[in-house]
Write a protein that binds this DNA or RNA. Sequence first.
DNA 1: ATGAAAGCGCTAACAT
DNA 2: ATGTTAGCGCTTTCAT
Lengths: 327, 327
Amino acid sequence: MAVTIRDVAKEAGVSVATVSRVLNSSGYVHEDTRDAVMDAIKRLNYKPNEVARSLYKKKSKFIGLVLPDITNPFFPALARGVEDFLYREGYHLIIGNSDEQMEKENEYVHGFLQNNVVGLIISTHDIDFHAIKTAKIPVVLLDRTTDEFPAVYADQIQGGKLAATKIIERGCHEVTIIRGPVTIKPVYERFRAAYDVLKKNNKKVNIIDAQLTFESGQKTAKELFEKYPNTDAVLACNDPVAIAILNEAIKQGRQIPEDMQIIGFDNISMSSVVHPGLSTINQPAYEMGLKAAEILLKQINQEKLTKIHYKFPVSFIERESTRKEEK
Amino acid sequence: MAVTIRDVAKEAGVSVATVSRVLNSSGYVHEDTRDAVMDAIKRLNYKPNEVARSLYKKKSKFIGLVLPDITNPFFPALARGVEDFLYREGYHLIIGNSDEQMEKENEYVHGFLQNNVVGLIISTHDIDFHAIKTAKIPVVLLDRTTDEFPAVYADQIQGGKLAATKIIERGCHEVTIIRGPVTIKPVYERFRAAYDVLKKNNKKVNIIDAQLTFESGQKTAKELFEKYPNTDAVLACNDPVAIAILNEAIKQGRQIPEDMQIIGFDNISMSSVVHPGLSTINQPAYEMGLKAAEILLKQINQEKLTKIHYKFPVSFIERESTRKEEK
DNA sequence: ATGAAAGCGCTAACAT
DNA sequence: ATGTTAGCGCTTTCAT
C-alpha cells in the first residue's frame, strides 16, 4: 500500500540499490541520478520503512525507558530530559512503568529487546541484567547505580547529609525521618546518610516508613503526629510526602517552620508553589535525563565513554519550611 | 547472534513452518511435535523477533502517544492509564512530547508511522490528519475532539459551567478568570462555558491569559493582584495555575476562601494536599487513558465501536478554597 | 557509477 | 500433519 523503495526506483528509472545509496549517502552515485532519485522521493512522498531497515541492520531507532511510575512527579522531568535529547537525534522513546515490580521490569526489558531497541535506560532495579548482557545492548542506569553499567544519578549521600546538616544548623531537638522503601537504593542511601549525621550529632531521631506518593504521605502524617508529637523537624523521603506532611501539620494548627521544620527531597516544581514553600534537596532531574540519553547514544555510536558514572551534585533549596536565620 | 526460528526448527527436528505454527497456534500441528517444539524453545530460550514479524505482517506491537508535555501533571495520569491497558494486552507505548508545536507533532506522527505503529493516541492538536488517514491506522483522540476520529475526553463545557455555577452559589462579586491558551480547544471550551454562565448572572468578570504551568501561574498571580485587586473569586484554567495563585494570595495575606475563592481544573493529586485544599473540577484522567487504549485496541482488532465519542462527566471537588456554606 | 541478488527473521500460501 | 518457498522492504556484497 505504502510507497516502497521499488516504487521510487521505478519512478526514477534506477535500481533499488541506487535509491538505497542515496538514502544512506553510502557508496558512489552520480549527482544527476542522485537528483533524479531525490525528485522521485519528493514526488511520491516516500518515507523509508524503518522496520525493514531495522530487520536488516538489527538496529532500530528505539530506546526503551523503564521507570517506576511516571505519575511520581520526579520521573516526568527525567523522562522529558531523555526524550528531548533523543528527539533531536531521531530516536524514539518507549516507556514502561514497572511499579518497582521485578516481573514487570523484566517483561518490559524482554519486550523491548524483542523489538530491537538499540539502547535501554533504566530507572528501576531488579532488572534481568543477564538478559541485557547477552543482548549486548548499551544500557544506562538513571537514578540508580551498579558498577557494571554506566549510570547517571544524583549524589544521594550528599543529599542526605545536606538535609541533616541544614536542619541541625537551623535548630532541632527531635527529628523524625520519613523513610521511603528501603529496597529502593537511592532512597535508602539518602535516608542512611541523613540518619548517620543526625546520630553523630546526638539528635533524637524517629523513623517512620512510607511509600513515595502523596497518599502515603497523608497516612504517614497522621502516624507522625500520634506517635511522635514532640517532633520539631522532619526529613521526608521525597517532596510529595513532605508536602503531604506540611499540609497535615498546618491543618493541625502547627506553625511551620516555628513549631516544626520540614525538608523534602527532589525539588519538584510543586514545591516552590505550596505554602509555605518547601525547603528541599534539589536533584537536577531534567539534566540527568539529558545526560543519560547523551551517554547512551554515545555508546550506540561506538564512542568511548570518558567515565562510567556521572554523579550529579545536589543542592539545598531553602524556602519557608525551614528557619532561614541560623541558630 | 540471537537464536532464530531456524535454530529452534533444527533443535526440534522440524521445519520453520511448523515452529511458526506452534508460535502462532495457527494451522495443524501434532501434539507431540508441538511439545518437541515447545521444548526446543525453552531450551534455547528463544524469543521471536518482533521486527521480522512486524515487517511481514505490517503490524507491530507499538502504539504511539503524542501529548503536549509529560511534565504537566495532568498528562502522566492519562499516559499511565493508556500504558496500563496496553501492557496487559502486550503492546508497547511510544511517547512524544509536542509542546503543542505543530512541527513536532507531525514529526512524531510520521516517525511513528514509519515504524509500523498499529495505532495512535493523540492528545494534542494540529496533527497531520491527512497523513494518518492515508496510513489508515486507527487513531483515538484523547482530551481533544474532532468529528472525524474516535475521541475520549471530559466534558469541558459541563466543567466550565460547574465551576462558574459553584462559585456563584458560594457568593462572589468580581471574578477573574485565568484563561489558558485559546488555541487549546478543551481549555478554551471550559473558559467559554464558565464565562457565559458568569455573564448571564451579571457578574463582573476579568480575564487574564496564562500558560498551563506553575511558573506561568506565578507570574499571572502578580498581574492579578495588581490589575484586579477587588477580585473575590478566581477560576483558573488548570490546577497548577490555581495552586500558584492560591500560594501568592496567601503570601499577600489574603484569607482563602474568606477574601477570595479559587477553583481549579483537573484535580491533580497535588490539589488535595496543598493548603488550603484546592476546590477543583475533576477530570478522570486515568480512566480516560484506560478507555482510550481500550477503544484503540478494539479498532485494531477490527471490532466495531459502539460509539465514536466517549465523553466523561466531570465533577466538582470541594475543598477549602471555596466557602462550603452556600450563600 | 550502477544493477542483480542474497538475506535480515518471520509468516503464509502451496505442496505433499 | 508437515515441509518448501516466496516475500515483507530494506541494505549490502559482488559483478559489471
